[in-house]
Simulated assay, not measured.
Amino acid sequence: MPYTTEEGGRLNNFAVEPKIYQAEPPTQGQQRNYIILGVAAIALIGGLLFIAVSVS
């Protein structure tokens, strides 16, 4: 673990930094999957709201 010695003999530890990489944009298939999951989530929330309103 990397460290430095400060005045008075104290050690100062530094965390290991993770490797940095540039994010890649989603592919066409991933974009399609995001749209499908978004529509499914909206349908699920809409269905739950419909059930809640009809029961009350």
Results as ranks from 00 to 15, higher is better:
1 M>T: 06
2 P>Q: 08
2 P>I: 06
2 P>Y: 05
2 P>N: 10
3 Y>C: 01
3 Y>D: 00
3 Y>S: 02
4 T>G: 03
4 T>R: 03
4 T>W: 02
5 T>M: 07
5 T>I: 15
5 T>V: 15
6 E>R: 09
6 E>H: 08
6 E>L: 15
8 G>H: 06
8 G>K: 04
9 G>E: 04
9 G>F: 04
10 R>N: 11
11 L>I: 01
11 L>A: 02
11 L>P: 03
11 L>V: 02
11 L>Y: 00
12 N>Y: 12
13 N>W: 15
13 N>C: 08
14 F>M: 01
14 F>Y: 07
15 A>L: 06
15 A>Y: 01
15 A>R: 06
16 V>T: 14
17 E>Q: 12
18 P>M: 03
19 K>L: 13
19 K>C: 11
20 I>K: 15
20 I>G: 03
20 I>F: 08
20 I>L: 12
22 Q>G: 05
22 Q>S: 12
22 Q>M: 11
23 A>I: 07
23 A>F: 03
24 E>L: 14
24 E>A: 15
25 P>H: 03
26 P>M: 02
26 P>L: 05
26 P>D: 04
27 T>G: 05
27 T>I: 01
27 T>E: 05
28 Q>P: 00
28 Q>M: 08
28 Q>T: 07
29 G>I: 00
29 G>A: 04
29 G>R: 01
30 Q>G: 03
30 Q>S: 02
31 Q>K: 08
31 Q>S: 05
32 R>W: 12
32 R>K: 15
32 R>Q: 15
32 R>A: 15
33 N>S: 13
33 N>K: 15
33 N>G: 04
33 N>L: 15
33 N>W: 13
34 Y>Q: 13
34 Y>H: 08
34 Y>R: 13
34 Y>S: 10
34 Y>V: 06
35 I>Q: 09
35 I>P: 01
35 I>D: 05
36 I>Y: 04
36 I>R: 06
36 I>W: 03
37 L>W: 11
37 L>S: 11
37 L>T: 10
37 L>I: 07
39 V>I: 14
39 V>M: 07
39 V>D: 02
40 A>E: 02
41 A>M: 14
41 A>V: 08
42 I>E: 04
42 I>C: 07
42 I>K: 00
43 A>V: 10
43 A>Y: 09
43 A>Q: 07
44 L>Y: 10
44 L>Q: 06
45 I>V: 13
45 I>G: 08
45 I>Y: 09
46 G>F: 05
47 G>E: 07
48 L>C: 12
48 L>D: 04
48 L>N: 10
49 L>M: 11
49 L>C: 10
49 L>H: 02
49 L>S: 09
50 F>K: 09
51 I>W: 15
52 A>M: 11
52 A>P: 08
54 S>M: 11
55 V>W: 15
55 V>Q: 14
55 V>E: 11
56 S>F: 14
56 S>T: 12
